[in-house]
Amino acid sequence: MIRFTDVYMHYGDGVEALKRINLYVEQGAMVYVTGRSGAGKSTLLRLIALIERHSRGQIIVNGQNLERVTGNRIPLYRRNIGFTFQEHRLLNDRDVFDNVALPLVISGYRYQEIKKRVRASLDRVGLLKKEKNYPLQLSGGEQQRVGIARAVVHRPALLLADEPTGNLDPALSLEIMQLFERFNQVGVTVLIASHDLAMIKKMNKPIITLREGKLLTHIGQTISE
């Protein structure tokens, strides 16, 4: 599903965010990316989402070489990915239903279909009753779940989650992680960036560890910390 070959990423000011990354995530996997702040977790996800471009090497996602995904192909490429963020990034002037519907509206679905899918997605995160609420009326955990419902409503092949539990207490964090697990069980490849090592270890999933932009452990390796 995702293959990095000798990938380097440095920003304009010369800071090397990623150094010679080689990794492979197979289709249908659920993988955690961990490391301290600034280790390059977010950069890794941003490269996959094409928010940023890598400087050297090759990234292949879902059979597509990302260097060839340019211009008009970027939107189409992104429609196959779902995102969640630490700070939710919900639109506060729209209710829960409209927030979750966003990826479907972008892809040009009909209203009937949108309604069906949004309801199904909200049901899966347990927030069907809150569809008329506005994000600011919800708790942090609920907002994160709305974000997840939005990330999966268009049934993407790949789900990227950047620090999804950053602001939540351990109990809520576990709930969120289990939610991701459930989506993974229906075939979605899930990549979660998190520094919450204690939580990650409990989940018993492959872990990629980054330190100062370098790959410290790969999938299957044990964490030597």
Binding site: P75, R78, N80, L91, L102
Partner: peptide, 15 residues
């Protein structure tokens, strides 16, 4: 914020 989210979920510039 809305524009960025739209872009992330694959909205075209025209959209």
């Amino acid at each position: 914020a809305e524009i960025e989210i739209n872009k992330l979920f694959g909205a075209t510039d025209a959209f």
